[in-house]
Structure formats: structure tokens, C-alpha cells
Simulated scan of single mutants.
Amino acid sequence: MQNKGTIWNNLIFQISIGIILGVVVGRYLPDVAGPISILGELFVRALKSVAPVLVFILVASAIANHKSTGEQTKSFRGIIILYLLGTFSAAVTAIVASFLFPVTLTLPTDGVATAAPQGVVEVLKDLLFKLFDNPVNALLEANYIGILLWGIALGLTLIRSSDTTKAVFSDLSDSISSIIKVVIRLAPIGIFGLVAATISTTGFKAFAEYGKLLAVLLGSMAFIAFLVNPIIVFLTTRQNPYPLVFTCLRESGLTAFFTRSSAANIPVNMALAKKLNLKEDIYSVTIPLGATINMAGAAITITVLTLAAVNTMGIEVDMVTAIILSIVATLSACGASGVAGGSLLLIPLACGLFGINDEIAFQVVAVGYIISVIQDSAETALNSSTDVLFTAAIDKRHS
């Protein structure tokens, strides 16, 4: 019988085959790619539909079925610190990259978005309201902040419940995890559909006009993924970080790249965390939490596109304003939703720091949507893979 690692490696191989076939079909059989795209849509919908229930049950069960220790408290605190540090580092990196390689835009006049937060206070208010959302509505709307709060609250109240009640939640957790395994096994077929649809729609040269903007975005994300994150992991574990970094990018980042949703990739990250033998009572909370607040890719997107707007308008940026932008980008990224394109609607908030009006800011958002097939995919891959990376780093530190 194959062990779990071999099965997982076979799945990665199958996903790679799905990608290749998707490229071939999208490039040479575009008429076929349209109907095939439903496979990708169904796969993403399946992940999104099961993820809220998974998070709620796993968090409640994990808290109800363990005894809190000082070591565990340190783990949670350490992971949250790494999440915020990683996101802030990404914003600073994006500022440096934008200063070194300034980008200006030819802004479109239509196709712009219609709504976005108007200030930091509104972002924080929105986060607060999400925390106290109705639990049923939170599950229906995939409001992971609200789901986390209700899962934690239920788990805490169940700590003193009978062993039978705790066993029920443990069995529910196992059952939901079994469903997840079935969905994940369908990943090669789903990604085949996603890739075919993407290539047939955009081709390989669709982003030539915005090549420099994409280069700054992707270069910043690569810098975080391959240098900054490994440094953070090394300082945390005092071990060679790259085996873990490459594992997370390959086995989490790959699927996140094509699903373009940190929330939808939660089941994939849960499976990877289990494969890495991380503590379930830790990762069952920190993985969904990371999908909400660990947003290095989003911080880069918000910062780079905002500074592109600033350069386009001929506005000078001093060091103090740049630091403030880093903080605002970090807070905004934490408020970005865990779905495709979630960071783009936060760009007007950051543009407001420089007195750029909504009309111009939303045109920048429109540019973001034009390049989002690549930008948002890379952003989500960085965001989601880092959730597992930092959780694993703290787990190794305390093991």
C-alpha cells in the first residue's frame, strides 16, 4: 500500500499533467476550453462550499478536545506575530521595489469597480462587524473571521462538556476531513479546466502592455517567497528553511495559484499541515486565521498599484509617507477578503493617503483587474503557502 506521502506526490504529478493539458487545450482548442472550464468552476465551488464548515467544525473540535498549555499559547502568539511581520515586510519590500523601478500607467476610462472602503476606520469597523456576525450568516457568506470567533466560542464552551459530546465533534471533524480528501483528489481535473479557460481567454501575450507593472509585482512577491520568508523561518527555527519553503510553495502555492482564493485553499493547506505532522490543535486554527490576516501578497499588490497611481499623477513621496503607506497597506491587506481579487478594492483606501480621488483610484483598480489573472494568482499562491510555512516554523520551534 502506498503511504500518504507517495499518494500526495502522485497528486502533485497529476496536477502537473492537468496544467500541461490545460495549456495545450487552451492554446490549440479554444472552442473546447469554454465547456471544459466548468470543471474548474465546479472544483473551486466545491472547495469554497466545504471550507466554511471545515473551519467551524475543526476549530470547535480542536479546542474542545485538548487541554490548553503554556506551550500552545506561545505557539498561537508566535504564529500571529509571524503573520503580521511577513505582511509588513511585504509592504516595505513593495515600496523599495516601486522606488527602484517606478511604474506609470495609461489609465482606462471605464470598467472600474463600484465600491471600496473609504478609510482605515471603515476597514477596522468592517472587521469588527464580521467578528460579531450571525453564525449561520457567517457560514453562508464564508465570513471566516466570524466563523473563527464562533468556532472558538463553541469550542471553549465545550471544554467542560461530556466525553460523549466531545467525541461527536471529533467524529464530525473526521467526517468533514474525509469529504475534503475526496474534493482534493479531484484537483487535477479542476485545475485542468481552470488552466484551459485562462489560456483560451487571455493567451500568453495578454499582459504585454503591463509587463513592467507585473514585473515589479511578481519580483516583489518572489523576493518575499524566496528570501524574506526563508530568513524569517531561519530566525525562528535555526534550521535550513528552503526544504520547507519549497514544499509549501509546491504543494500549497500550486493549487492556490489556480484557485485564486486563500479561503478555497484552506482544505489543501489542512491536508499539507497534516502531511507535515503539525499539531492539529494548532493548525486547525492558524490556517483559517492565516487566510484572513496573513496577506503578504495583498500588501504588495496594494502598495505597488498605489505607488503606480502616485507616479502617474506626478506626486512626490517622502519617507514618512512611505512608512505610513506600509502600515496602511498592512492593515488593508489584513482586511482583504480571502477570495479572488479581494485586495484590489483596498487600493482606493491607500490612494487616499496621497489625495488621489476615487475616479483615478478606481481606474487603477481596473488595471488591477486587467492583470489579475497573473497578479492575483501569484498573490494567492504567496499568501496561502505562507500560512502553512509560518505555522510549520513555529511548530518546529516548539517541538
Results as ranks from 00 to 15, higher is better:
residue 61 S to C: 06
residue 36 I to Q: 05
residue 37 S to I: 05
residue 84 L to Q: 01
residue 46 A to T: 05
residue 65 N to G: 15
residue 66 H to T: 15
residue 62 A to N: 14
residue 58 L to M: 13
residue 117 P to M: 09
residue 146 G to C: 10
residue 143 N to C: 10
residue 58 L to T: 06
residue 83 Y to S: 02
residue 141 E to A: 12
residue 38 I to N: 04
residue 135 P to M: 09
residue 71 E to A: 12
residue 146 G to T: 08
residue 102 P to T: 11
residue 64 A to K: 05
residue 132 F to L: 06
residue 57 I to N: 10
residue 46 A to F: 14
residue 32 V to T: 12
residue 67 K to V: 14
residue 74 K to M: 11
residue 31 D to Q: 14
residue 33 A to N: 03
residue 81 I to D: 06
residue 110 D to W: 07
residue 125 K to I: 03
residue 112 V to N: 07
residue 131 L to D: 00
residue 129 F to I: 07
residue 64 A to F: 13
residue 23 V to L: 14
residue 27 R to T: 15
residue 94 A to G: 08
residue 127 L to G: 04
residue 112 V to F: 07
residue 34 G to N: 06
residue 29 L to D: 01
residue 101 F to R: 00
residue 161 S to W: 00
residue 102 P to W: 00
residue 116 A to C: 05
residue 112 V to C: 02
residue 134 N to D: 15
residue 136 V to N: 01
residue 65 N to L: 03
residue 154 L to R: 04
residue 141 E to K: 14
residue 80 I to R: 02
residue 51 A to Q: 14
residue 139 L to V: 14
residue 49 S to T: 13
residue 151 G to N: 05
residue 112 V to G: 11
residue 107 L to V: 07
residue 110 D to I: 08
residue 46 A to L: 14
residue 77 R to M: 14
residue 33 A to H: 03
residue 36 I to C: 02
residue 144 Y to M: 15
residue 108 P to V: 00
residue 105 L to S: 11
residue 125 K to S: 15
residue 107 L to D: 06
residue 97 A to S: 05
residue 106 T to C: 00
residue 152 I to L: 14
residue 140 L to P: 00
residue 47 L to C: 13
residue 142 A to V: 08
residue 145 I to M: 10
residue 40 G to L: 10
residue 142 A to Y: 08
residue 153 A to S: 13
residue 98 S to W: 07
residue 90 A to Q: 05
residue 158 L to I: 10
residue 91 A to S: 15
residue 65 N to A: 07
residue 111 G to S: 01
residue 33 A to M: 07
residue 135 P to F: 13
residue 44 V to A: 07
residue 72 Q to W: 11
residue 98 S to Q: 05
residue 79 I to F: 03
residue 80 I to V: 15
residue 138 A to I: 05
residue 75 S to G: 14
residue 135 P to G: 03
residue 84 L to C: 10
residue 104 T to F: 02
residue 30 P to A: 09
residue 129 F to P: 01
residue 69 T to Q: 06
residue 99 F to P: 02
residue 131 L to C: 13
residue 59 V to S: 01
residue 138 A to H: 07
residue 49 S to C: 08
residue 31 D to F: 12
residue 113 A to N: 01
residue 145 I to H: 02
residue 114 T to M: 10
residue 43 F to H: 02
residue 36 I to E: 04
residue 88 F to A: 13
residue 61 S to H: 04
residue 121 V to R: 06
residue 94 A to Q: 08
residue 163 D to V: 12
residue 68 S to V: 06
residue 40 G to M: 07
residue 160 R to D: 08
residue 25 V to E: 09
residue 30 P to I: 07
residue 49 S to A: 15
residue 145 I to D: 05
residue 157 T to H: 11
residue 117 P to E: 09
residue 161 S to I: 00
residue 27 R to A: 10
residue 156 L to D: 05
residue 105 L to H: 10
residue 28 Y to E: 11
residue 69 T to K: 08
residue 73 T to M: 13
residue 63 I to V: 13
residue 130 K to P: 03
residue 134 N to G: 02
residue 23 V to D: 06
residue 82 L to P: 03
residue 155 G to T: 12
residue 96 V to L: 15
residue 97 A to H: 03
residue 143 N to A: 11
residue 115 A to Y: 12
residue 156 L to F: 09
residue 161 S to K: 14
residue 88 F to T: 12
residue 48 K to H: 09
residue 105 L to P: 10
residue 91 A to R: 06
residue 72 Q to L: 15
residue 91 A to T: 04
residue 68 S to H: 03
residue 62 A to I: 03
residue 22 G to C: 07
residue 115 A to L: 11
